[in-house]
Amino acid sequence: MAEVKKRSRLKNARGWLFVLPGLLFHIFAVAIPAVLSLYLPFTEWNGLSMPTFNGLDNFKQLFHDSIVGAAFLNNIKWALFWVTVPTLFAFFLAYLLNKIKRGQTVYQSIYFSTSIITVTVAGQIWLWLYNPFSGMNFYLDKAGVGFIDIPGLTIPSLSIFFVLIADMWKGFGGNVVWLLAAMTQNDKSLEEAAKIDGAGRFRIIWNIILPQLRPTLVIVTMLTVLNSFGAFEMVYVMTGGGPAHATETLSTYYYKLSTTGRQAGYGSMVALLQTFIAVVLIAVYGYLRKKKGWDV
C-alpha cells in the first residue's frame, strides 16, 4: 500500500516537474506583472525610477482628460464599424463562397491573403494610396475623374474611418473563414425544405442560415468588440493617433503616455480603464449566454 502511495507521489512530482517551467514563466511573465498593473495606476512613475504611491490622483486626472474621452469615442466608432461593415461584408462573401462548388479554396486564400501581411506593411501601402499628392487622387486625376476626391487622412474628423478601411482590408478575411467554416456545418436539409415550401433567398438567410450561425456570429462579434477596444497597430502605424488626437485610441494613448510621455503611472490608469471595459463586455456576454441562451 505504502509502495503504491510512494509511486503515486513520485508520479505527481514528475508531473509538477513538467509543469514547472511553464508555471514559472507564467508567474513571472504574466501573474506578477498583472498584479503589479493593479498597483501602478495609483502611482506617479516615469517608467524608470521607483513608482511612488499617489492615491487617486491619476483616477481624478482620468476624468478631466479630454483626450481619454476622445480616445474612448474612437474605440466605440472602431467597434461599431467592425461589427457592422466588415462583418456584413464577410458574411456576404462567405455566403457566396458557400454556394460555389469549384475554386472555393482559391477564393478563400485570396480573401485571407491580406491577413498575413504585417500591419506595418499594410499600413504603409494604405499611406501611399491615401497620399493626397501621389496616391489614389493623383491617378484619378490623371484618369480624368479628378472630381472624385478621396479625403484619406486629410480631413481629421474622417481620418479614423480611413484607418478603419485599411484595417478592414487587412483583417476581414479572418471573419470570412470563420463564417464559411460555420456555414459548411449548417444542416442543408433545412434549406432544401424551406425552398420546397416556397421560401425566398432572403427568408432562407434570415430564418434558416442566420439562426444556425448565431453561435459563431456571437463569438465573432464578441472578439471583434474586444479587439476594437484594444485597437492599436494600424492606428499607430498610419497616424500615431494624430492629427490632434483625431485617431487616438485608448491603447495608442497609454502607450504614448508610458513611453515618450514618461507618465507610465497615469498610462497604467488609462490601461486599467481599458481592462475594466473588457471585463464589462465579457460580463455582458456571460449574461447573454446564460440568460438568453446565446450559447456557442
Binding site: Y130, N131, P132, F133, S134, L153, P156, P243
Partner: peptide
C-alpha cells in the same frame, strides 16, 4: 503643404520639394 502637412510624411514632403511642387 496645402493644409495637408499632417497627412504626409517628412520623406513625402521632401519629394514635393525635390519635384518642384
Amino acid at each position: 503643404t496645402d493644409k495637408k502637412s499632417y497627412a504626409i510624411s517628412q520623406d513625402d514632403s521632401m519629394q514635393l520639394f525635390l519635384t518642384g511642387k
